[in-house]
Structures are given as C-alpha cells and as structure tokens.
Computed example of a mutant assay.
Amino acid sequence: MNDVEQLIIDKLTGQIGEEDDFNRHTHWWWYGIAAAVAGIVIVSLFLLINHNRNKIAPAPGILVKLANGEVMHTSVQDSLASWMQDVRKANIDPSALNTVMVPAGKQYTFHLSDGTKVWMNSISSLQFPLLFTQPQRNVTIAGEAYFKVAHASQPFTVQVNGLTVTALGTEFNIKSYNKESTYISLVTGSVSVQNGLGERIVLLPGEGVVVEDRNSPLRKEKYDESLMLGWMQGVYFFTNEKLEHLAVIAKRWLEIEIQIKDPTLAGLRFTGALDRNKPISHFLSWLASSGGIRYEIVGSKVVISRK
C-alpha cells in the first residue's frame, strides 16, 4: 500500500470515526433533552395534582369529638382502640364523654369498652365514655341506633329525648329523630323505659314503646321487626308513609334532596321499601309508577311534580 492509499484509508476511517462519535454524542444529547422534558412534565404534574388536591375538600365521614374538644375524622369501622390511644396521648379522663357523629348517607358500627356493640344509622350521634367507671354504664343517643348490650353487673342506661332506657344484657333498637316520635323496640331480654313524669314500663321481646314528644305518656305496642330493623340491612320499609316524609328519609339515608314542586302531592301515601343498596333511580321510578307523579333531576335535586 503506497502513501496515497494509506492517506485515503486514514481519512475514510477518520471520517467514519468522527461520524460514529457525532452519532453517539447526538444520541446522548437527545436522551438528555428527553430526560429533561420528562422531568419537567413530572414536576408539573406533581404541582398540578397537589394544587388540585388542596382545592378538593375531603369526603365527609364519621366524626369523633373527644372530651377535650378535638375532632377526628374516621372511615374505619370499630375504631375505638385507636381513639383510646389518642385519648391516652392527650391525657384525657377516660370517663369523660366523647361523641360519635354519623352524617347523612353513612352508617357506623363499633364496640364500647364493655363489649356492647352499637350499630348507628345516618344523622345520629352517641355520647359515651371510653371507660365505664360509674355505677351505671350510661350513654346518650340522638337519631337511631341498635344496641347489643354486653352482660355486666352495672346496668346499661340510654338517655334519649327525656327517656331513660335501662338494661343488663339485651338487644334493642332506639329511633328518635328531631321532630319525630321516639320508638324503643326490644328484640331480646328485657328493658325498662321511664319518662320524666315518673311513668315506667317494662318491655318483653317483640314489644315497643312509642312516645310522641317529651310531654306525652308512654305507649306500649307490638312492632313489626322488618319495619323497625330493616335499616340494619340497608332497607327502609314503610307503610302508608307520606311523600313529604319519604323525602326526609331520602335526604337522611342517601344525601339526596327531593323537592316536591306541587304541595298537594306532599300528602300522598305510599307503602314499599327504599333500598340504599340500589340506585336511587329504582326508588324514583317506583314512586312515579305508583303515585301518578313524575320526577326530573335538576342540578343536585330531584324535583317531583304531577303527571
């Protein structure tokens, strides 16, 4: 190979080498740009998500107001143990009263410290101590709850709308919503019910007490278990119920506001069931077919009018 040929080969191989170096550097340059762009996108998405997260209010859940005024949110069923830890950390008297509040559309189940199990319905609150240190195990209910009382030497008492319900070990339901009658329904065992006037009634299984208001006498009567306890299975059974009251139940149970556009429809009466496990459209369609009414969804409301 002469010098000229070698020079040509050297130039060719040099150009190829330079081209390889160029391509290699070019590829890395593009990789660097892609990585930088990806980093910018990720950071932007992170900032956007956090910005939007700050704008979104947390979904309403179960509220626990401790005796020291601190309010906690929980979605965990039967979370008494975690409350006890928080109370110990806060150095709160375990015999002081705390309050569990269940909002519309929710239910909550938990155990008290004595082992009593409580099922709470929507729009209900229960005041109770974390430890029962008094001669009586005393709680206060507003709304609706089912109690499965643990056996103990201390009587278990529930204060509700001016009434005192006393039991040792039994199961019963209490329903006492604002501007509605109070119902106490015994399932097992026995309870005594006493009002502020000094009247006292002892109930046996299958019996209940109805009180119209604080100043009304106690009235004992048999009750329909499916009507009174269906809510625990997610079904509200009703008999000869006014449409205006069904609207109240729908708001309490499903967080849906029903507006009755024609006032003359408010007194229409229905017998049936509202199943919270099914879409509200099932219930509304049934209403429309049963009562000669029609409904339409306007914004966040359901408006009912005459056909």
Rank of each mutant, 00 (worst) to 15 (best):
V41F: 13
T116Y: 06
K220D: 00
V165E: 06
R88V: 12
I141E: 09
A59K: 13
S113E: 14
V71C: 00
Q15L: 09
Q259N: 10
R137C: 00
N54Q: 14
S281V: 12
R269V: 07
S82F: 12
I62H: 03
E244D: 11
R53E: 13
N215Y: 14
L186N: 09
R24Q: 12
E257F: 05
L131N: 09
M72A: 04
L287E: 02
H111V: 00
Q194A: 15
K220W: 01
R219E: 13
L63E: 15
T13A: 02
A57T: 10
D224N: 15
R88D: 14
M101G: 00
K65C: 00
G169S: 08
T170I: 04
D262C: 01
S216N: 02
P279L: 01
P129Y: 12
A266L: 01
G61D: 03
M1D: 06
H25Y: 11
S122D: 07
L186F: 11
I9G: 01
T164E: 10
G162P: 07
L63W: 10
Y223C: 02
T133V: 09
E180D: 13
D86Q: 15
E255A: 11
V303E: 02
E244W: 05
K301S: 06
A142T: 13
L63H: 08
V118I: 14
A250S: 15
Q136I: 15
W119G: 03
R219T: 08
A34G: 06
N54K: 14
P263T: 04
G39C: 10
F132E: 05
E225D: 06
Q15T: 07
F147V: 07
S289M: 10
L168D: 01
N215I: 02
A90K: 14
I33F: 09
G14S: 12
N240Y: 11
S75Y: 10
V302W: 06
S44G: 13
L7S: 12
A59H: 02
T170N: 05
V139E: 01
Y183R: 08
T166Q: 14
F110V: 01
G105R: 10
A35H: 04
L197W: 05
T74P: 03
A288W: 08
S216F: 11
V158R: 04
S153G: 10
D78K: 13
A59M: 07
V211F: 03
A273Q: 13
Q154D: 08
D10E: 14
A90N: 08
F172N: 02
G189N: 09
S153K: 12
W253C: 08
R219Q: 15
A36D: 05
A35W: 04
L265S: 03
E5I: 12
Q6C: 04
N178V: 11
I258Y: 03
K89R: 14
W29A: 09
I141G: 10
M72P: 00
L203S: 05
N98C: 01
